[in-house]
C-alpha cells in the first residue's frame, strides 16, 4: 500500500521535482538523509565576485513529506565569515526553489548551506565549492 502511495505521489509530482537526471556538468547533486537536492547555478559556472542565483530542486521526496527549504547561505570556513549579501529565497513549485542575490566576493573554498524544515526535524544539507 505504501509503495502504491509513493508511486502515485511520484506520478503526480511535477516535472521539476523529478528532473534530477541528465544534469548539466555544473549542477551539484547533494545527498541528504531522506532526499537528494539538485543545485543549478545561474549563470553557470558560479562566477567569482559577481551576483548569481541558484535553482534548487528536490529529488526523491514524497509529496506528503516534502520538506520545506527555509534558508540558503554560503560562508568561507577557513575565513570564518560569510557573504556580504542576503539571498532572497522564492518557492517556484513543489520542491522547486530559486535563491537570488548570492555573491562570492573572495576566491577560495565556500560552503553552501541549505536549511530545511521537515515534518520531523530540521535538516541541513551542504556542499563545498572552490571559487576561482
Amino acid at each position: 500500500m505504501r509503495a502504491v502511495a509513493l508511486s502515485l505521489a511520484l506520478l503526480l509530482a511535477p516535472a521539476s521535482v523529478l528532473a534530477c537526471a541528465d544534469l548539466p556538468v555544473q549542477a551539484r547533486l547533494v545527498e541528504g538523509s531522506h532526499f537528494r537536492l539538485v543545485v543549478l547555478p545561474d549563470p553557470m559556472p558560479i562566477p567569482l565576485n559577481a551576483p548569481f542565483a541558484l535553482d534548487i530542486k528536490l529529488c526523491d521526496a514524497r509529496m506528503a513529506e516534502l520538506p520545506r527549504l527555509s534558508a540558503v547561505d554560503a560562508w568561507m570556513p577557513a575565513h570564518r565569515h560569510g557573504m556580504n549579501y542576503m539571498p532572497k529565497l522564492a518557492k517556484l513549485d513543489w520542491g522547486h526553489y530559486r535563491a537570488e542575490g548570492l555573491l562570492l566576493h573572495m576566491p577560495g573554498e565556500w560552503e553552501f548551506v541549505f536549511d530545511f524544515a521537515g515534518p520531523d526535524k530540521p535538516e541541513r544539507l551542504s556542499f563545498r565549492f572552490d571559487a576561482q
Partner: peptide
C-alpha cells in the same frame, strides 16, 4: 541591469 542586484541584497552586519 545586474548592477542593481547588490543593493537589493546587501545587509548591514556588525563586522
Amino acid at each position: 541591469s545586474p548592477a542593481a542586484i547588490p543593493i537589493r541584497h546587501v545587509v548591514q552586519l556588525h563586522r
